[in-house]
Amino acid sequence: MNKILRTLIPFDIAKGLSVTGKHFAKVFFTANRRKVPFHIVSEYPEVIAKVQPRFRGRLTLLKDEQGEIKCVCCLACEKICPTQVITIDKGKKEGRKMPFPVRYDFEMERCIFCEFCVESCGFDSIILNHQFELAAYNREDFSLGMEGLGQNMYEPSPVGKFSVADD
């Protein structure tokens, strides 16, 4: 008897509908009235998500106050990289005691953003910045180096070149 009643009267469906109905009502009565402190989803190209301070983005070479590259070619990052995306050539520069990187190449298409390179660096000369819009149309755009068409590795990094938000 009890089973027939439960089959005829859909309490289980009503229970589920009450959950979805509650959420629907919450959105329906608060939408576009600026009463909701935050929405769960944000509309991405217009509202860019805030990343956490430890976010691991693109590799960036840093310069000191005099505009000199901090890197001293200890090759620690090149050795520790699990995917071998960093290539450094040692060189000399006038008026600088420490070795100077003639070439610092970074193949971004193979980078897995593990931050092992930054961790291994004893001179704080590289960081991973907070850039996450890293898409590009050409393969050459992923090969970053010390020189090139806006594709160098210094700060400020070429943010927004391929960003949807800028269009």
């Binding site: 990343v51 956490q52 430890r54 691991r56 953003f113 593990c114 092992f116």
Partner: peptide, 12 residues
């Protein structure tokens, strides 16, 4: 995850 180690899915 992102706050702790900087990445969301492949955390390391």
């Amino acid at each position: 995850n992102e706050a702790f180690c900087g990445s969301r899915l492949t955390t390391t």
